[in-house]
């Protein structure tokens, strides 16, 4: 509760926190709040400019853009959320373990993560999607793997400092096993930085998921995705420029809100960062 109080003192963070909550509400309720069926084509209604009937207009197949943007919100939220979950579930235990055990295993894993970190996320993700195939699961896996090294590093770093704490030695002194110590002492004490890292990863994933689908490597049509919608709208940029408005604003808002909430979270957990700005 103390945490929420401190977080809400940051007005920017609070505002975009609410925006982010709204975005997720839209994502959750997408199937009920879309005004039209986002997949229903209607060739009598192609390229309609924004109107009261179709707020964001209709595309080349006569599909309602607003409905498509709303459904795409759900897909983006799901893909990025699962990708973060994947990166956390795979990266954090590895980082905790090698940080706690140390030795040659630690050195080996760190060198491998260093190698993975050399590649820009998008490049790694493209290679992985090409290997796995451009499906929703492929994108989740590719994004997750590409950011897993970050989670390994963060988890290892905080584990290194937590393992020097006296309460770890106290647990050893009563006969606790390594597995028990990692689960009951290390994990609760490193969870805050992990949550911050996850929130900072969210905007990166939102952008990269869209970038992949812009390149045709993401979710396949007819399922709507912001990047893929933007890609399609480029062809009609002169006769139907309004097609870009919806996906652009949605992408912009989601990324901005996720970024600022991530920063605010980090400052709440580590207030020293704030003064430096």
């Amino acid at each position: 509760m103390d945490f929420l109080k401190r977080f809400s003192r940051d007005k920017v963070g609070l505002f975009f926190g609410i925006v982010l909550v709204l975005i997720y509400l839209i994502a959750l309720t997408a199937h009920w709040i879309t005004p039209y069926d986002p997949l229903q084509t209607d060739l009598r209604k192609v390229f309609q400019p924004p109107s009261w009937e179709h707020w964001l207009g209709t595309d080349q197949f006569g599909r309602d853009m607003l409905s498509r943007v709303i459904l795409a919100t759900q897909i983006t939220a799901r893909v990025t959320g699962l990708a973060i979950l994947f990166a956390v579930i795979t990266g954090v235990p590895i980082g905790m373990f090698v940080g706690f055990v140390g030795g040659w295993l630690d050195g080996l894993v760190m060198r491998i993560t260093d190698m993975l970190l050399i590649f820009p996320i998008i490049m790694l993700a493209i290679v992985l999607v090409v290997i796995i195939g451009p499906t929703e699961n492929g994108v989740i896996f590719a994004l997750g793997i590409s950011q897993m090294p970050q989670f390994i590093r963060v988890a290892r770093g905080v584990t290194l400092s937590v393992k020097e704490e006296l309460y770890i030695e106290a647990a050893v002194a009563v006969g606790a096993s390594r597995e028990y110590i990692l689960r009951r002492h290390v994990w609760p004490n490193i969870s805050a930085p992990i949550i911050v890292q996850a929130s900072l990863t969210l905007p990166v994933f939102v952008l990269n998921a869209s970038a992949l689908s812009y390149l045709g490597l993401g979710v396949q049509p007819p399922t709507p995705e912001w990047g893929q919608m933007l890609n399609e709208s480029v062809a009609f940029i002169f006769n139907a420029p309004y097609l870009m408005i919806g996906p652009t604003i949605a992408l912009f808002l989601f990324t901005l809100a996720a970024n600022l909430v991530g920063d605010a979270l980090q400052e709440t957990i580590n207030p020293k960062l704030k003064k430096r700005k």
Binding site: E165, L166, Y167, E169, V174, H185, P188, N189
Partner: peptide, 25 residues
Amino acid sequence: FQDPYSSLDPRMTVSQIVGEPLKVQ
């Protein structure tokens, strides 16, 4: 331990801290 500050896990309640030896064993 010498240091009563870092020898108790800040994320655990007193009953978890004192009961931990019984649980582990």
